[in-house]
Amino acid sequence: MTMFHAVVLIDHHQAQVLQFDAEHVQAEKVKARTHHTKQHGSAVRTEHEFYAVVCDALAGIAEVLVTGSHTALTDFRHYVEKHRPALVPQVVGYELVDHPSDRQLVALAKQYFLKYDQMNGGRTAAPESSR
């Protein structure tokens, strides 16, 4: 079930993707796989593989808020802009947070999207396939 809004809590090791509507929340965890090699740049490749899986989890979601620490947000944003430019319009914001619960995260996202939608002249219509 793909919903209209999602909030992502991301760090360099895992991501919590919470899709939600007025009554439901659907959670998905994405964990980074670790590749212990001495090969130059393997940590960057591992991080890029992780970010790619997170991006795949956001497919079809119209509006996404990404939350996390400053470095995690910066690194993920750079990855999206460079490697997944089609996802850029779906990510409506980046917010710094410090270990919120799932309930706090959804409340923050609902408040954020309410302000975002009001600033943009009302809620963007959900795609026909998700109605």
Rank of each mutant, 00 (worst) to 15 (best):
L9K: 02
A62M: 05
G60W: 09
R77Y: 02
G93E: 05
E63P: 01
G121H: 02
V66T: 04
A6Y: 01
E95H: 08
T34R: 15
V53E: 05
D98E: 08
T2G: 04
E81V: 10
P100G: 07
D56P: 04
K29I: 08
E28L: 13
D11A: 08
H48F: 15
K38V: 05
A109N: 03
E49P: 01
A72P: 06
K29E: 12
A126W: 01
H13N: 14
H48L: 10
G121L: 03
A27T: 08
H99R: 09
L108F: 04
V80R: 00
Q26Y: 13
H83W: 14
F50S: 01
T74E: 15
K82Y: 09
D102G: 08
L18W: 02
S101I: 06
L96T: 06
G121D: 03
H35V: 13
Q19L: 09
C55F: 07
D75H: 08
S101F: 02
H70Q: 13
V25G: 00
A15R: 00
H40K: 14
S69I: 04
E23R: 10
D75N: 15
T67G: 06
R103I: 15
A52T: 08
A22I: 07
R84V: 07
D21G: 12
R103H: 13
Y112I: 00
D102L: 08
Q111R: 14
D98C: 12
A15K: 00
H12R: 15
H36V: 11
H48Q: 15
D98W: 12
H78P: 02
D102K: 11
C55T: 03
Q14G: 11
H13S: 12
A15D: 05
K115V: 13
V53R: 06
A57D: 05
H48P: 00
A109V: 06
T124C: 04
V53L: 10
Y112K: 03
